[in-house]
Nucleic acid binder design. Structure first.
Length: 274
DNA sequence: GCGACAG
DNA sequence: ATCTTGTCGC
């Protein structure tokens, strides 16, 4: 998979102000409404049943009428000053491709500028892909970001691909309701607050839903498991983003694509440790 | 000045 | 993210 908007790609050597203004340009280019080349209802972990199926072109955008869309999960692990970016692609419940790349890191982790640290390395891994995913699921935020341009939004726009951000903690914004001790499947909107700037046609008032808190898993009744914070990256709405994450949830807290990428990032890491 | 913050 | 043993429970 190749970058389509390389002009907006995270480049090393930018000043903080330059990185922030690039994020505003990314937000301007971002689409937080459904603009998908496939039916979101077809995204699932169920393996397609193709018994009496005739020969079809499963490589077309969105696949054929029976095969589910290709969903890529992306995550990283670290080795000293290098990042190992892993990508696992699923079609229904089947893993169809796994690739990874090891890249040097230019910046430290700075809240709000994550895509400038991990974005380049992730693009390195995506370039290794033979297939062309219909949806990208990132570990981190999308629109839930100070300038509405988190990692998922930045790379979704650069690749011009539908993308979703799945974070384990909240960067900014305010949940409509208290998120503790909620049952599986529960969700509540995350509204923009004072720390979120309006950018390029995307408002940032309390009426703006920039994402959702989503309880993907809960064991008993104890508030042991925190919710996930799901936000649209590019080409879909916040509501569709949570629905998709819900559809991609298996038996664990993280949705399957991201969980598998997380495991693969650790597994592959062992090959590079001195 | 204080607070607060994805991975 | 990463450093890390055991431990509680389905």
């Amino acid at each position: 998979m190749r970058p389509v908007r390389s002009d907006l790609a995270p480049r090393p050597g930018l000043s903080r102000d330059e990185m922030e203004s690039l994020q505003r340009r990314v937000a301007e280019a971002a689409v937080f409404e459904d603009d998908l080349p496939f039916d979101p209802a077809r995204v699932s972990l169920d393996s397609p049943e193709r018994e009496n199926e005739t020969l079809t072109d499963a490589t077309a955008p969105g696949g054929d009428a029976d095969s589910p869309p290709l969903v890529a999960g992306i995550d990283q692990s670290f080795l000293d000053d290098r990042a190992l970016s892993a990508v696992v692609v699923l079609r229904g419940g089947e893993v169809v491709e796994r690739v990874h790349a090891v890249s040097d890191l230019d910046l430290p982790y700075i809240p709000g500028l994550l895509s400038f640290r991990e974005g380049g390395p992730i693009l390195d891994a995506l370039a290794e892909l033979d297939c062309d995913p219909d949806l990208l699921v990132f570990d981190g935020s999308g629109r839930i970001h100070f300038r509405q341009a988190g990692l998922a939004t930045h790379l979704g726009v650069v690749c011009d691909a539908p993308s979703i951000g799945v974070a384990k903690s909240l960067l900014c914004g305010t949940p409509d309701e208290d998120v503790d001790g909620r049952p599986e499947g529960w969700r509540t909107p995350i509204r923009a607050d004072d720390s979120v700037d309006p950018v390029g046609g995307h408002p940032a008032g309390p009426e703006t839903t920039i994402g959702y808190a989503f309880q993907s898993r809960q064991y008993d009744s104890r508030p042991i498991v925190n919710p996930l914070y799901v936000s649209p990256g590019h080409r879909l709405s916040a509501a569709t983003a949570v629905d998709l994450v819900s559809q991609l949830s298996g038996s664990y807290k993280l949705p399957e694509p991201t969980r598998l990428a997380d495991a693969y990032a650790d597994e592959a890491k062992a090959q590079y440790e001195d």
